[in-house]
Design a protein around this nucleic acid. Structure first.
Length: 262
DNA sequence: TTCCATGTTCCGCA
DNA sequence: TTGCGGAACATGGA
């Protein structure tokens, strides 16, 4: 699930459940999720600390602690956060658990172990190291910056939108929605887009991500006319009712309406 | 049983 | 140099 809107949902969830509580201990249940930090160091850094606030960059969630460092969460294809009051409610596939003094627990859940957990002092050097572009909803990505990024890019527009080093946060699912609402075929070449197309793409991208982030990635809360609820094998276009088509782009499956997207 | 999947990374090719 | 296809990672679900 986790693209920008979903990670924004996790941030809201974390902010409303797990802040300002002392962490008693940390359990790493599967060390494969750890990136550039040992279970021992992580536990040491978190013990006695409180989570202060979540901050998102693309698909990454940085959680600042009272010790000053940041717990870094990336959710891969199947990750999520769960907060609960009793160990019996501990979810299946929990890979990391923060045990609060209150006895409540926060679990980082990763079914397919493709996500990663790390711990850093500052987000910026980490973002730099990962080679991430500006967050797709940030002020840094204004229209001029976006047009400039596209001007330096060639190839398929869907690939460009999904390239985290160009701009961070958009994945396979939301790139489909953005292109659908922009009326652009996923295989259109960036260098062949008119300036009008590019401006519309920017406006659409911001609107779609903002709206989806508001509902934390819940597809059933999206306005009517969105592609995503219809994004499946036998789905039809919410605008014209014709069957959606599928085509592979950058090793993933793009869904689009051949009639509405040119 | 086989194939596909919302993630990233790495390699070889054009 | 850059974009792209494919493989790899891991494992559940259709």
């Amino acid at each position: 699930m986790p693209e920008l809107p979903d990670v924004e949902g996790f941030k809201q969830y974390l902010d409303s459940t797990a802040l300002h509580q002392e962490i008693m201990r940390t359990s790493v249940l599967d060390e494969r999720i750890l990136d550039k930090v040992s279970a021992r160091t992580l536990a040491l850094r978190l013990k006695g600390a409180q989570l202060e606030a979540g901050k998102r960059h693309g698909k990454f969630l940085f959680v600042r602690t009272t010790e000053g460092g940041r717990l870094v969460l990336h959710f891969g294809m199947t990750g999520e956060l769960r907060y609960y009051r009793h160990p019996r409610d501990r979810p299946e596939y929990a890979k990391l658990i923060l045990h609060f003094v209150s006895r409540d627990e926060l679990a980082y859940v990763s079914k397919r172990v493709l996500g990663r957990v790390s711990y850093v002092e500052q987000p910026e050097p980490f973002i730099e190291e990962q080679g991430l572009g500006p967050d797709a909803l940030s002020e840094a990505l204004d229209k001029e910056r976006f047009l400039q990024l596209l001007a330096e890019r060639r190839g398929m527009i869907k690939s460009a939108l999904m390239d985290q080093s160009l701009l961070a946060g958009i994945g396979n699912v939301y790139s489909d929605e953005i292109l659908f609402q922009s009326g652009l075929h996923p295989e259109r070449k960036v260098e062949q887009l008119s300036r009008q197309d590019q401006k519309k793409l920017y406006r659409t991208l911001r609107r779609v991500l903002r709206k989806a982030a508001e509902s934390g990635g819940a597809l059933d809360e999206l306005p009517a006319g969105y592609l995503l609820p219809h994004r499946q094998g036998d789905g039809v276009c919410p605008r014209c009712g014709r069957p959606l088509k599928r085509t592979p782009v950058s090793g993933r499956t793009a869904y689009f309406c051949p009639h509405c997207q040119g």
